[in-house]
Design a protein around this nucleic acid. Structure first.
Lengths: 217, 217, 217, 217
DNA sequence: AGCTAAGCGAGACGGTACGTCAAGTCTTTCA
DNA sequence: TGAAAGACTTGACGTACCGTCTCGCTTAGCT
């Protein structure tokens, strides 16, 4: 399945050199165009090869699978999208971000996002690329935002950041993939509120948002 | 794409009659076997036809797509799995359920679940089946659990049930699909706690878990 | 390598039926065109599929390999070529036929013949087709010619027909393939004479052309 | 197609010098190993380059094509194989040689021989190498044998030597390539007898093996 | 009981993309 | 400066699976 040296996480150790880098960039650019024009289904390896002028064989030397190419191209493409809000309030920031991400998922590029996640299910190597070139960046951004909150004193440092991120955005991913609940701004706003406030009332055997770590003992 | 009358939600209005019902059951049974043996990839339409003794053409008269068949088979297969806990405490019940679902996602059949979600992305008709025969049942169960909490007084009736469900289980789906965070029992336990307690402390401009609807105004 | 039921000699037992027959004929016709236009190299499976309107997958259901398709197409194409001479003299007939075959090998279609033979070397299944649809017919024709000579009394029935054929035409094949000796009419005429007369003089411990079987004792 | 100066017959005029000679020898040796181990298909240019430690570019400076390399390697490899018999009788010598060559063609290296001939069909430059480094030597040997016969008086000097060789060995080549007739010792023996005695009886309007040239007039 | 028409089994088919392979060319780097 | 290393293009390969389609056979259900 893989035809190049690969590090343990499935990321291919691609050829080095100026020429190689140029080809690499051409492939990414062509893939981005195709993703924009017709989604993941349009970004076949043949189409990428043709559009980029780089041969299929070379593409398979640089990436382990089509999904990996698309994941990297998509990650680069979205790098500057969805800039973080900075209202001074962590609650506001997160709520706003949930709404923005919801709107994004509901867009054409959001469909590409869904296709990529889907493609990762049977392609662990591709999934590694998706995480490295898309997810990691997104999650780092939210982590920054959260850290600001901690510094400011309105975020609880004892909550695992992965929980923070996934409780806020996991629901949107779930909804986007199965379509069981519409990705409207209204729903996003409510979701943020629900997630941020916690589901159950205080005093149900647990103090709300205090002493988080203790509860695990 | 569809070769039978279909209702607006993509569910095919299949032929009626005893014979038809028998064939239907055979297909579902064969598909379940195949899903168990080799996941979604093993459940090709050809394989289902061969194993069930029902022809491909007939299968496509009963379902709009392969995904739809698999979704229904999977739904039936999982119907009795993951029975709801009933500890008397909503918090305990939900926390326990999050852990069970996490363990399920981490299993072989959890992989099938992920494959089905993935397959739904480019197959709206299949997605309708997945929702109808799998998701809806799951969500109804959690809804019941939540209702018990409301009746008991430890659940807030103003929170949209879709938020309840998705905040608790969306993170697990997200993690299962991209693999960015392991589905361990430890993580599940913590996640439940985080989701149930709310992310931010009380007094950050909002009262925790009270007067939920008001906030939307 | 083979994806259809195949008889022991490598000939695929292709689907039956009117539609199937029509497709079969289309493939053969398209292949013949391509062979004429650009030789074996032009008759790629993709090209045949495109030109014939028959899909690649179907072609591979009817034949075990590209060589097999080409061999059959070529055999059908050449069926009426090179009609046997009938001068009343076996010597004259054979000599004439050697010259005709030499001229044929030297032509464009002779090049295709050489390419087919070459392709058979690493494709036993293709070779079976080449023998069945091309060689066998040719050899049967020479056998007929030879039988006329036997009936007439000027051919020796004790000589194995395979020796007759191969001594006369094997040299031409050899020359065509390696190009070590030109396929001129002059050379063909001389070759026929040499082959027909025998290489060594009478009285070299063996009687010329008499009692063939005895010599083996 | 060719990247070095080449003489008119396709033989590359390779670089001179001690270093160059060493590289040349390494390539030939590596190719011989590969041919022995896995036939022509194993002797890919990449494999030869790797095994010999000589780069592909350098190989293409010394030879016009892969076939050419293999042909030369094969020729060198077979140089001492199949030594000529010398029984004192031309008939015996030739008959014995036909049997030896038949046995050789039926061996593993005989398969390589067939693959090389096949490869020459679409590679005139390679064919030139095959003739120069393999065929020519073989043919010269038979020519010597035949000359001994002429000197001895039991071979007819008027028969073109190319006819002698091709009538005797062309049939074996033909049989080896298409597999239409088995390469058994029995068949070889009979073939030699047939070829050496001539196909048609004396008195069929031509004197057997006499006055060969006259017949052409 | 026989007729008829829908339902069905069997499986051929087109389409589309996949990932692979090897030949031959070209570039970069090293000694 | 010449070769090693190896990246790159090209072109074809054979495979897989989807969803469609055609052809008879079967079997209800009606006459």
């Amino acid at each position: 399945m893989m035809n190049s040296a690969a590090t343990e996480d499935g990321i291919v150790d691609r050829p080095r050199g100026a020429r190689s880098d140029r080809l690499h960039a051409q492939v990414i650019a062509a893939t981005q165009e195709l993703l924009r024009e017709g989604g993941l289904n349009a970004a076949t390896v043949d189409a990428i090869a043709q559009r980029s002028g780089v041969s299929k064989a070379t593409i398979y030397k640089h990436w382990p699978s089509r999904t990996a190419v698309a994941a990297k191209a998509f990650g680069r493409m979205m790098a500057e999208a969805l800039p973080l809000p900075d209202t001074g309030s962590t609650r506001e920031d997160l709520s706003e971000q949930v709404r923005r991400v919801s709107a994004f998922y509901d867009s054409d590029l959001g469909a590409v996002f869904a296709q990529l996640i889907a493609a990762c299910v049977d392609d662990p190597a591709g999934a590694a690329y998706f995480r490295k070139y898309f997810l990691d960046g997104r999650r780092a951004a939210i982590t920054d935002l959260w850290q600001r909150g901690i510094d400011r004193g309105d975020a609880d440092p004892s909550i695992p950041i992965d929980d923070v991120i996934d409780v806020l955005f996991g629901p949107l991913v779930f909804r986007r993939l199965t379509g069981h609940y519409a990705l409207t701004d209204e729903h996003a706003r409510t979701l943020a509120q629900t997630a941020l406030a916690g589901l159950l009332p205080i005093g149900d055997g647990i103090a709300a948002r205090t002493d988080h770590n203790e509860q695990l003992a």
